[in-house]
Structures are given as structure tokens and as C-alpha cells.
């Protein structure tokens, strides 16, 4: 290996999801096998670095002060969905079901990893709750300990004593199209706890 190649491999190795071998494969692919792909990629990365920023309102990816969700006047400002990161927002958007707006925390409280409230996009959430006509806050965070703690923190710090705002948590349960038999006990418990009245 040449020193220059090794440097590229090292840098790729530092990216999330890439192990030693995949980093090597990518480096080989771009530098040796398909060098023609490199120039457009570099150009796109450069352009994106200049253009992409955080939406000033919700923290989503944007190329103007407001992201595509916030700029869409058909979205309902009364329902605010709090998510941990941009991929979570994208996953919810793909369902096409949610018509409110989002707030991206860019992480969750994790003292083990040194993530406190100051590291999260929480101050802006406080401002939004103070100025926007929010009637419902949907906490769409994971149901592990750190997700739970983050939900409690948001409720206590921003929503306690706030009359007229409904606070909800997304349901946790069975994947669609699957039966009960093969679900693990934890999922079944969550779906029992999250059962709802269907009348009758």
C-alpha cells in the first residue's frame, strides 16, 4: 500500500458503518477500479458542503433557511413531532401519514457518551413551544433507557404545567403483517401496553 492510499483508507475507516475491509474496498474502487466516479463525487460533496445546512426552525437538512417540511404551508403547525435524528425524520416522511412539523434533536441524552441537553437542539425547541401554536407534541423517540430519559426531560423542562398541549408518545408494537407467535416477549409486552379501545 502506498502512503497516500493508506491515508484515504484510514479516513474512510473513520466513517460510520465502514469497517476495515469496506473502507479498503471503497478506496480501491474510487482510486483504481472506477476513477471516473471520483470527480463527480468530489464535486457533489463540495457543492453539498456549501449548500446543505440545518433548518433554522426544526434542525432538518435544508438548502435554504427553512427545510422542505417547514416551507410547506400545508403542514399543520399545531402538531409537532420530536425525533432523534434526520434519518428518523426521513423514515416518518416516507410513510406519508404525518402532516405536522418536526423537531430534530440531533441525538438524545446519553451521559455515558457525554451528551447532555447542551449538545442537543433543545433550546430551539423551547423557543418554538413558546412562540408557535402547538397543540400536540408527539415524542417519537426510541423506547430504550436513553430514549425514555430524553422524553422525561423534554416533558419536565418544556411541557410541565403547559395547559392545552397534548403530549403523546409513539406506540411500540408488532411489525405490520406479522403474527404474535414469532414476536419476542419485549415487543409483545409493548404492544399489550399500547393497546387501544376499538369500541364494542
Amino acid at each position: 500500500m502506498t502512503p497516500a492510499f493508506e491515508k484515504v483508507r484510514q479516513l474512510l475507516r473513520g466513517l460510520p458503518g465502514l469497517g476495515h475491509r469496506s473502507a479498503e474496498r471503497l478506496a480501491l474502487h474510487l482510486l483504481v477500479e472506477r476513477p471516473a466516479k471520483l470527480a463527480p463525487l468530489l464535486e457533489a460533496l463540495g457543492a453539498a458542503t456549501r449548500a446543505v445546512r440545518r433548518c433554522e426552525r426544526c434542525g432538518n437538512l435544508a438548502e435554504s433557511p427553512a427545510c422542505s417540511v417547514c416551507a410547506d404551508s400545508r403542514r399543520d403547525p399545531a402538531v409537532l413531532c420530536v425525533v432523534e435524528n434526520v434519518p428518523d425524520l426521513m423514515a416518518l416522511e416516507r410513510t406519508g401519514v404525518f402532516r405536522g412539523t418536526y423537531h430534530v434533536l440531533h441525538g438524545r441524552l446519553s451521559p455515558i457518551n457525554g451528551i447532555g441537553p447542551g449538545e442537543l437542539n433543545l433550546a430551539r425547541l423551547g423557543e418554538r413551544l413558546a412562540t408557535e401554536p402547538v397543540a400536540e407534541v408527539v415524542l417519537a423517540l426510541g423506547n430504550d433507557i436513553e430514549g425514555e430519559a430524553t422524553c422525561h426531560y423534554i416533558r419536565e423542562s418544556f411541557l410541565a404545567g403547559r395547559m392545552g398541549t397534548k403530549v403523546t408518545r409513539i406506540g411500540f408494537g408488532l411489525p405490520s403483517g406479522s403474527g404474535l407467535t414469532f414476536a419476542d416477549a419485549e415487543t409483545l409486552r409493548s404492544s399489550l401496553e399500547g393497546r387501544r379501545d376499538v369500541g364494542g
Binding site: 441524552l109 446519553s110 451521559p111 455515558i112 457525554g114 447532555g116 441537553p117 430504550d144 433507557i145 436513553e146 425514555e148 430519559a149 430524553t150 422525561h152 426531560y153 419536565e156 423542562s157
Partner: peptide, 27 residues
Amino acid sequence: RALESRNALLRSGQADDAQLEALERAM
């Protein structure tokens, strides 16, 4: 996991009541 989080928070020197409360509820 929650206990490790609470201890890490205590060690960080930034353990304010709000964060402790949030973890204690989850615990």
C-alpha cells in the same frame, strides 16, 4: 444501563436536577 448513565452524569460534574430526574424516572 440507566445506572451507568446516572453515574456517568454524576462524574461529569454537570448533573443538574432536571437530567437526574429524567434518568431516575426511566430507572
